[in-house]
Amino acid sequence: MSRNAWQEDRGNKDRSITRSGGGTMARGTATDVRPDTTHAFLVGDSMTGGYGTGGDILHDCTIAVDPGEIAVIVGPNGAGKSTGMKAIFGMLNLRQGGVRLDGEDITDLSPQDRVARGMGFVPQTSNIFTSLTVEENLEMGAFIRRDDIRPAMEQVFELFPILKDKRHQPAGELSGGQRQQVAVGRALMTQPKVLMLDEPTAGVSPIVMDELFDRIIEVSRTGIPILMVEQNARQALEIADRGYVLVQGRNAHTGTGKELLADEDVRRSFLGG
């Protein structure tokens, strides 16, 4: 982290005058080194880079998702799964590689601009407005849209019926699984061309996890391509059309979910046999 003098608080954490937890989202940078490879709908192509001025975390890593597909990024802890997703979303300093959406180069766009171009992103943590009601969360999701958002909201309520019942409750009061539904619903409100989920099942019980996966499949059936990072590799690969196994920031294995599940190497190294 490069710190300037204005970021030195000398350890002050006086809550009577300052409020912690400000925005952490920083915009990444890009270079012109962009080898052309595939023609996928969304592709992070040969990405190399890291956070700030720190060392590279990704090394020539390529991740792509096609229309109608669920693509899953799996791998051991610290493999750069979330980093790969953040790179596609423009929150990483890329030294090489590029990102294209629907054939258009978006490498130079800020995360916000990528949202405007049709990328929906659900962060792993802090992915809802806890003090706003469920309905307000969805409304905020559609902030950039100036047209009628009611059909989109109805669609979200169809996908996640429980949210309709709880629409006037503050989102922070919901259970873990319901919060994740709000988070996904919020991202869907822009009617994105592609949905990116960073560990949507982190910290929820196995039953809720199964339900969440069912919902994700349903979202995918509405025609939105989904790219997600998952800790629960086996379940994720079972529903994946395409899987990426990352090891130390590099593509270790790529294939359909079934292929990867069947792959001896993949099973041995981290699916636990």
């Binding site: 002050n12 006086d14 809550r15």
Partner: peptide, 8 residues
Amino acid sequence: RSDYLAIA
């Protein structure tokens, strides 16, 4: 629980 030195 949190630091309220300034106002104090």
